[in-house]
């Protein structure tokens, strides 16, 4: 069973819909036992880093996520909260990835919204995916490049489009909204 972590962030059901299209059942839950016993955990989200992190701390979900041993996939805000720190709301995050999250300089359109590709793809998540494939992004803050970076996107400046450390995987883009390319990436995660 796949557990999708329920918290005060939007767009969680679209992940469940995407899994269902791939023939995979999932539960949206904040129940610790259900999360710990799940085969895989997805930590999605669209929202504001400060209030999301506060909510996770109140429910002790931050410690729980850090302690998970099964494959975990953070998406968008999920990825950002798995970093060390976010400039959004001056927020201390979980620190799984050695990377900080910064606001895009306002020299081009912000948010970075729409379809963009990526490069320097590493790891199983990008099996059968090429650097010319496009995925859907919508964000105003970006995770810096670090040793955990497994895909780079260039918008205003290069940033981490995806990261991995041990059992923790994350993407800044939304695989659940990224047509066939996104479905392939989700499938690669489900097959881990």
């Amino acid at each position: 069973m796949i557990a999708i972590i329920k918290y005060n962030a939007g767009n969680i059901r679209s992940v469940q819909n995407a899994l269902k299209r791939l023939g995979c059942e999932s539960i949206i839950t904040d129940d610790k036992k259900e999360i710990i016993s799940a085969d895989k955990v997805i930590f999605p989200g669209v929202g504001e880093a400060g209030s999301a992190m506060r909510y996770l701390r109140e429910k002790d979900l931050d410690e729980l996520i850090i302690s998970l041993k099964q494959p975990v996939l953070g998406i968008c805000l999920g990825q950002q909260l798995m970093c060390r720190y976010s400039e959004e709301g001056d927020t201390k995050c979980m620190g799984i990835f050695d990377s900080d999250v910064r606001l895009f300089p306002q020299v081009d359109t912000v948010p970075h919204m729409g379809w963009n590709n990526f490069f320097s793809l590493k790891g199983v998540l990008f099996e059968s995916i090429s650097a010319t494939d496009d995925v859907y992004y919508v964000h105003s803050y970006y995770p810096e490049i670090s040793s955990c970076t497994t895909a780079v996107c260039d918008y205003i400046l290069p940033f981490s489009a995806a990261m991995q450390k041990e059992n923790f995987y994350a993407t800044q883009f939304h695989p659940e909204k990224s047509a066939a390319t996104g479905e392939r990436i989700l499938k690669n995660f489900l097959e881990l």
Partner: peptide
């Protein structure tokens, strides 16, 4: 729509 469509 949300159940069937894989784009925003």
């Amino acid at each position: 729509i949300a159940a069937e469509i894989n784009i925003p």
